[in-house]
Design a protein around this nucleic acid. Sequence first.
DNA 1: ATCCGGAGTGGAACCGGTTCCACTTTTGTA
DNA 2: TACAAAAGTGGAACCGGTTCCACTCCGGAT
Lengths: 344, 344
Amino acid sequence: MKKAPTIRDVAATAGVSVSVVSRVLNPDSGPVAPAKRQDVLRVIDELGYRPRAAARELSAGHALTIGLVVTDLSNPFFARLADRIVWEARSHGIQVVLMTTQEDPHLEADSLDTLLDRSVSGVIATPTGGNIEKWARLQDLGVNVVFVDRTIDELTDVDVVSIENFDSAKRSTEYLIGLGHTRIALVTGPRSTSTGRARINGYRAAHQDASLAVDPLLIRDVPFRGDSGGDAVGSLLAMPQPPTCLIVANTAQVQSSVRRLVQTGIRIPEELSVIVFDDNPWTELMSPPLSVIRQPLDMLAVHSLELVLGRMQGKLSDGPRLIEVKADFLARNSCAPLAQTAIH
Amino acid sequence: MKKAPTIRDVAATAGVSVSVVSRVLNPDSGPVAPAKRQDVLRVIDELGYRPRAAARELSAGHALTIGLVVTDLSNPFFARLADRIVWEARSHGIQVVLMTTQEDPHLEADSLDTLLDRSVSGVIATPTGGNIEKWARLQDLGVNVVFVDRTIDELTDVDVVSIENFDSAKRSTEYLIGLGHTRIALVTGPRSTSTGRARINGYRAAHQDASLAVDPLLIRDVPFRGDSGGDAVGSLLAMPQPPTCLIVANTAQVQSSVRRLVQTGIRIPEELSVIVFDDNPWTELMSPPLSVIRQPLDMLAVHSLELVLGRMQGKLSDGPRLIEVKADFLARNSCAPLAQTAIH
DNA sequence: ATCCGGAGTGGAACCGGTTCCACTTTTGTA
DNA sequence: TACAAAAGTGGAACCGGTTCCACTCCGGAT
């Protein structure tokens, strides 16, 4: 077990000072004679020298690292989002420290502390909804925070990237109304989040445009946490006058909702039309293939990272940014006209 | 944007030297008078002081961080594995830097360099199969390497955690033979990996026990990379005398294989019985629910981390460890007796 | 009374980079 | 040719922790 060479080893071998080596390493930090630059580069190569990140971070005061804080990776949406973000970050020479919260604010708080210790220069997160003051403190300490997919209302000063919530919900609802449905259930995120509210508003707007009354009992704004999506589905199906279709507009709840649907054995779309906000590869492989709102993960990832990087480089003007990307509605075979729906 | 307090701030405020504060921070590094310890702890709390990880790493020479190198997170197997590892690591106060390789040895090499820069004290990886010398160098530099799910034969000195490959493949095959099948296709990892070979051997052993000949054309040892699983499935189905069942024993290829099956519209299990090595939540939600070998992700995660930690603390004796965990076979509805199978 | 050992403490070097600054050499321009 | 500006270089401080070591106490054993 040999030890790795340091910048002083390189300097000594190349017969120059450490300053010169450092300037070779960081091209814009000062002049170096072309000949010496070559020498140094050759020595670096020969010795297999690589600068230690810790040393760099210590003197820079911040790390070329961002934190990624998501619920859990067993949800394909977050997994794919993480995948894209890691990928995108790599192309900018940035590493990603991954933390999961299981939707638990305590674990989230913990994660933030840890990321702070690591002097990350940015955090991309799907927040649980708690830790208001902690997020604020993080920003106060110069960490660039971007929320993706969700948001917290109380934090007005944070960049947010999400899909066009209002529009996506409205179009999904319109599609079902177009098929003749009038009792459309909506499972979405908490009303305390602006994304949750926007989706409810889109749903309402579609009803209003069609001069349709909204049954408030069909709207379930459930927490991100736990199995509340599945529970909402269960209770919706148990209603005296159950819905003829279902929109699951809460990413974190898609999996548990679909699971519940499969478990109850309800026939899709014969008994229930279904649309979910998720575009994971398996929805297409189910039978029937599910109609989905396809969240453009690439765009979410790219924009989140762009925001973080932009802030890091001080390129962005003050004031929070809200980026909404368009989400496509993809009709597959999980929706049927009301006329063909068997009311159970 | 205020700046965070340092250990010297704490020392000054508490009226002690930095040495004392450091000793309070690291309980076993030296004696501190109980009264002063209380003082220091109070000041730490008041100031909201947290030690900077970079400084600690720099002087320690290594970081309380491990690297996790997987193919990609859009594959539920890797995503869930990552989830468990992150979770498990957190409980030991260790952070995880995530890197994805897309099965590309170049990207893998890149990732390893980066992790080296970060002075990670361990790496858990599903190796692509390349970079033999790079992995060796990593170990040589004192980084603890654990391969999970797969292995590289050329590297004899690495700890490995995987399922009981031989046994799992044998039991799956026996199950199908028990249903009367004789033409069983196997899609698995490259023969150049011991895991790939073990699964082929298990498959062969089951045939031998049943005095059944093995048609070598039915064994497809495909690369982890890309769509080769799907392609293998395609070519298997196109054979003059196609198989009546299929075992996909290569985690990385399950998704593309299943996708191909769905695309060709072949009826499962009426035309083809299917078993896959994967236990992701969606296989159960498909119709029919797929019979699977359930890889105990928890065990894989726990053992990998245990190995890395054990090495870090020097608790493990020399010599590589091979840990094989039992994998359950879970019969669902994707397999039918040969008698009921329609040869197409 | 004397000596010894251990608890408790602070000073200072060190980890490996970056950066500021003073200094020398080259280059360009009047 | 003279002089200012720019290019090039190395020394040393600094980032914020850890750790070694020297030193001062103190109690207990001789």
